[in-house]
Amino acid sequence: MAHPAVRLVDLRDTPLEVDEVLAALDDDASGGLTLFVGRVRDHDGGKGVVGLDYTAHPSALERLAEVCDRVAAAHDVTGVAAVHRTGTLAIGDAAVVVATTAAHRGAAFEASRDLIDTLKAEVPIWKHQRFGDGTEEWVGSP
């Protein structure tokens, strides 16, 4: 059963909207909202990145929901949201949006940091980067 603070969990191949995440977490009990947006940058490891693709294992959405539930249970939060892109992304595109709300800012900051760190460590989503020099690499794949 999902923790009641979990309001939005999704993987999608369409652009992510920060406003959707903010709306999902809107409530009068939350004095603090911490939002993290991970974007596609133009470099990695000293090389120029020209684009990338995210691929998700079929279990990724279920795993993401489990991570959100654990984070909600571990922190004094009123809301949790996490949305991750799949497919082809360009430089500057939002790849992941996570946010938490809490009565006070400290709990929201701690929970959001835990959420993005645990998501990256445990949810089977893999990044395939393409570099300007014609090389490529997979990041996070088993």
Rank of each mutant, 00 (worst) to 15 (best):
A2K: 04
A2L: 00
A2M: 00
H3C: 00
H3Q: 00
V6K: 09
L11A: 04
L11W: 13
R12Y: 05
P15R: 13
L16R: 08
E17Y: 02
D19A: 15
V21D: 06
L25Q: 01
L25T: 01
D26P: 05
D27S: 15
A29S: 14
S30A: 13
G31I: 05
G31P: 05
G31S: 03
G31Y: 01
G31T: 03
L33M: 14
L35T: 07
L35H: 04
L35V: 13
F36N: 11
V37P: 13
V37H: 07
G38E: 09
R39C: 13
V40K: 10
V40D: 07
V40P: 15
V40T: 11
D42V: 13
D44F: 14
D44I: 05
D44S: 00
K47L: 01
K47S: 14
V49C: 01
V50M: 14
V50S: 02
G51L: 12
L52Y: 11
L52H: 10
Y54D: 11
Y54V: 08
T55Q: 15
A56W: 10
H57P: 09
H57F: 09
P58K: 03
S59P: 09
L61G: 00
L61V: 15
E62D: 01
E66A: 14
V67N: 09
V67F: 08
C68F: 10
R70P: 01
R70G: 01
A73L: 05
A74R: 08
A74V: 09
H75P: 00
H75R: 00
D76A: 13
D76C: 14
V77Q: 04
T78V: 01
T78D: 04
V80W: 06
A81H: 02
A82Y: 10
H84A: 07
R85S: 13
R85H: 12
R85M: 15
G87S: 14
G87C: 13
G87H: 06
T88P: 05
L89A: 15
L89G: 10
A90V: 12
A90P: 15
G92V: 14
D93Y: 03
A95N: 10
A95R: 06
A95P: 10
V96K: 14
V97Q: 08
A99E: 01
T100P: 08
T100W: 06
T100C: 08
T101G: 08
A102P: 06
A103S: 09
H104N: 01
R105Y: 08
G106L: 07
F109S: 05
E110V: 03
A111Q: 07
D114L: 00
T118A: 07
T118I: 05
L119D: 04
L119P: 04
A121H: 12
A121G: 00
E122P: 09
E122Q: 11
E122F: 04
P124I: 12
I125Y: 05
W126E: 15
K127P: 00
K127Q: 06
Q129S: 06
R130C: 06
F131W: 07
G132R: 13
G132V: 11
G132L: 01
G132T: 12
G132A: 15
E137Q: 15
E137A: 13
V139W: 14
G140E: 11
S141N: 09
S141K: 09
P142K: 11
